[in-house]
């Protein structure tokens, strides 16, 4: 068993593009759920539109990537508006279910054979993200690696990571600026009790809509990074559990905090990859009985996702405020 490899893999996942995508998705969700109290269970829908908007604009319409990215973000924004108008007045639980449903509708439509001409349907879509990688300042030869051991990235990956983490930092700072303002205070008041906010003259619908739009566009950014990273998009990558992973990251890091979603995303990928690598190494161990090794072989991914579920349960049981949250605030929540 080589723990250097395991840790290297885990660290690479923790700082790689997946963690960036998850961090952005969680920052957006934090605005919805953490600050406004909107139980958005369809965050994956925003990510999906960001990814597909970008991919389809470039792959199907042949436009420049720099046109595709704003299109992806615009679609995420449009989804927020289209989704918000009928649903923002609903009971929290109903809102949750309708948002899941909306994201599933979009996924089914995008992935249907009828949509092959536009989105590639079930065949997925791929495009040339050369416009982005042309700007890559890192040497990107086949031998170029940045890092140590298995914790190493190619030049292309380094460029995605650099831009991605810069974006995360920028977005986090923007969120900090608007949340500490009186505007952010209104969001929190809506989260606590929207009737109270109404009785104080706040147009609750309008604020919720603004929050949904901002968080949705940030989710769209996650999709754009995803599209660039994979040079395309696949409908199977946008199932409802993506939203649940995003919640896991957010809850792990601490809801309604500024850095919680970022730390949570890093931790999420670190732990998930650590478990998977560990199991893969374990399955190769000679002392392990053959039956167990056979059972593990190829099931590492399934087990590590199951662990995410277990982690959610344990987290809620033992540290519902996440690693950075405030215990007292959580206790006030037990209403």
């Amino acid at each position: 068993m080589d723990f250097d490899i395991i840790f290297g893999n885990a660290a690479r996942a923790a700082f790689g593009p997946e963690a960036i995508i998850l961090a952005l998705a969680a920052i957006g969700l934090n605005i919805h759920f953490g600050f406004t109290g909107l139980l958005n269970f369809g965050q994956v829908g925003f990510i999906m539109l960001g990814a597909y908007g970008t991919s389809v604009a470039v792959a199907t319409f042949g436009w420049s990537l720099w046109v595709g990215i704003p299109i992806g973000l615009f679609l995420a924004l449009a989804l927020a508006v289209a989704l918000g108008i009928p649903t923002l007045r609903l009971h929290a639980v109903m809102f949750a279910i309708v948002t899941i449903a909306a994201a599933e509708i979009i996924r089914i439509l995008i992935g249907s054979t009828d949509a092959i001409g536009l989105t590639g349907g079930p065949l997925s879509v791929s495009f040339d993200a050369g416009a982005f990688f042309d700007l890559n300042p890192y040497a990107d030869g086949p031998q170029d690696r940045y890092g140590v051991g298995t914790f190493a990235f190619t030049g292309q990956q380094m460029w995605v990571i650099t831009v991605g983490w810069l974006l995360v930092a920028l977005v986090s700072f923007g969120v900090f600026l608007i949340i500490r303002s009186p505007w952010g205070r209104v969001l929190k008041s809506i989260r606590e009790d929207q009737d109270a906010a109404r009785s104080l003259g706040k147009n609750v619908f309008s604020y919720k809509m603004q929050a949904l739009m901002i968080g949705g566009v940030i989710g769209g950014m996650a999709g754009v990074i995803d599209a660039i990273k994979t040079s395309g998009a696949d409908p199977n990558g946008f199932r409802p559990q993506v939203t649940f992973y995003t919640y896991t990251a957010l809850l792990l890091g601490g809801t309604a905090t500024y850095l919680g979603p970022v730390l949570g995303a890093i931790l999420f990928w670190f732990l998930r990859e650590w478990i998977e690598s560990f199991l893969r190494q374990l399955a190769a161990e000679a002392w392990l009985p053959g039956a167990i090794a056979d059972f593990l072989e190829g099931s590492e991914g399934i087990i590590s996702v199951g662990m995410v579920g277990l982690a959610l349960v344990l987290l809620m049981l033992f540290r519902p405020q996440g690693i950075t949250g405030n215990r007292i605030e959580m206790q006030l929540d037990a209403r």
């Binding site: 087990i303 199951g306 579920g309 277990l310 982690a311 987290l315 519902p320 037990a334």
Partner: peptide, 28 residues
């Protein structure tokens, strides 16, 4: 959990966790 007076949201998240766990077990 009811005796511990966990919030509605925490309970929902626990059921989501169980859902993921259960589905992965079936897959496994």
């Amino acid at each position: 959990l009811r005796a511990r007076r966990l919030g509605i949201f925490q309970l929902v998240v626990i059921t989501i966790g169980l859902s993921l766990l259960g589905r992965q077990l079936v897959q496994l």
